[in-house]
Nucleic acid binder design. Structure first.
Length: 324
RNA sequence: ACGCCAGUAGCUCAAUUGGCAGAGCAGCUGAUUCCAAAUCAGCAGGUUGGGGGUUCAAGUCCCUCCUGGCGUGCCA
């Protein structure tokens, strides 16, 4: 069984774009993979200075992932907090010492963030090394990522190979697995759905605001009676992204677009119903989980124990290899 | 460590010799619309970075601290 590692950012409310883009694939992968999923709490510190909010977000993202269907039962998915595995920071240091500075200078995510006006701490700068440590700490076979993260996995591979070259075979060099980008959804304004654009749809919202949110999706002004091109419509793209391209409901909605006589208001109602249906069990589960903090703690404790056992092995290997 | 510049609504910025803290955008509510967009009407938004002082009156002047940017120096 292949081992898979993935990290998630505790960046506040998740949205249906996250689900279609990544979470759903984790849920599918858990059937036939050994999975390690961690909350990137150290990484989060590169961009937040609000302790209360950070700890809230960390807890919430765990709840939301489980609500979405990640199964934290022993032997299924190991969910843990990054800072519960301090070995990661030691690995980060060992890797830092084989990382040429120019490798970080070239990292596009750093350059992007700085050009957007984010304050550049050393932590943000060496972020890819910490990420390499996350990955290498559990000897994964695969690291599923979006296209924006491919470079970071390449850096991980480079650092692992460099370390192995200098100190002998130590790290398993992981492969990245590009996530299907078909999962990318537009937001209510038609741009890519992203928290930073403020255009997300949160499947856990109360029904009334949720409905309003969906109704506010930007459309063109084609009259009701005219046929419409579904591929040009944000509402349809979101619908298809959530229901699936091969789902009969998607085919039916597509027909109604092409036939004419259906207004965008109806399409939005269909999307609203779809979201309530698809996320109904997640919504209920989330309420249960929020009322059971003890359970979340247990999950995290088990996850941390499993991840830490792996991380110790790897760290021991690395220490010995470099002469410590 | 020292020096210079800056900090006003979520964002970008105004505010005359010290004289009622404002605008644009974003946001929210309503009208309109199949739903949106656009437009119109309305609403909300603030410890002017914190504290102290001068004054009848401080965003504005003085002191101090904090944060950020830039520069110089010092130590390793």
């Amino acid at each position: 069984m292949k081992r898979v590692l993935s990290g998630i950012q505790p960046s506040g409310q998740l949205h249906v774009g996250n689900f279609a883009g990544a979470i759903r694939q984790f849920v599918e992968m858990q059937r036939d993979h050994e999975m390690y999923v961690f909350v990137a709490s150290y990484h989060a510190l590169t961009s937040t200075r609000d302790p209360r909010k950070l700890s809230e977000n960390i807890r919430q993202v765990v709840i939301d992932y489980i609500a979405f269907g990640l199964d934290p039962a022993p032997g299924k998915v190991n969910i843990y907090l990054q800072h519960d595995v301090p070995e990661v920071t030691e690995l980060c240091w060992l890797l830092s010492c084989v990382c040429p500075k120019h490798m970080m200078d070239k990292a596009t995510s750093f350059k992007d963030k700085v050009s957007k006006g984010l304050q550049a701490s050393i932590g943000l700068y060496v972020y890819p090394i910490l990420q390499a440590a996350d990955i290498l700490s559990v000897d994964p076979d695969l690291v599923p990522v979006g296209s924006d993260q491919v470079q970071h996995v390449e850096i991980t591979r480079d650092l692992a190979m460099k370390f192995n070259h200098y100190f002998g075979e130590t790290f398993k060099v992981p492969a990245h697995k590009l996530r299907e980008e078909a999962g990318t959804l537009p937001g209510v304004d038609g741009q890519k759905m992203s928290k930073s654009y403020g255009n997300t749809i949160d499947p856990f919202m109360a029904e009334k605001p949720l409905r309003k949110r969906i109704m506010s999706i930007v459309t063109d002004s084609t009259p009701v009676e005219d046929p419409k091109d579904p591929t040009q419509c944000t509402v349809f793209q979101i619908f298809r992204g959530l229901a699936g391209a091969n789902d009969p409901r998607t085919a039916e909605l597509e027909q109604r677009y092409r036939a004419g006589g259906m207004g965008y208001g109806d399409a939005k109602k269909a999307l609203f119903e779809l979201i309530l249906e698809e996320f109904g069990s997640a919504r209920r589960k989330r309420v249960e989980l929020m009322n059971d903090p003890g359970y979340i703690e247990t999950v995290l404790r088990h996850g941390a124990a499993a991840a830490r056992a792996k991380a110790r092995e790897v760290t021991d290997r690395a220490r010995k290899a470099c002469g410590l």
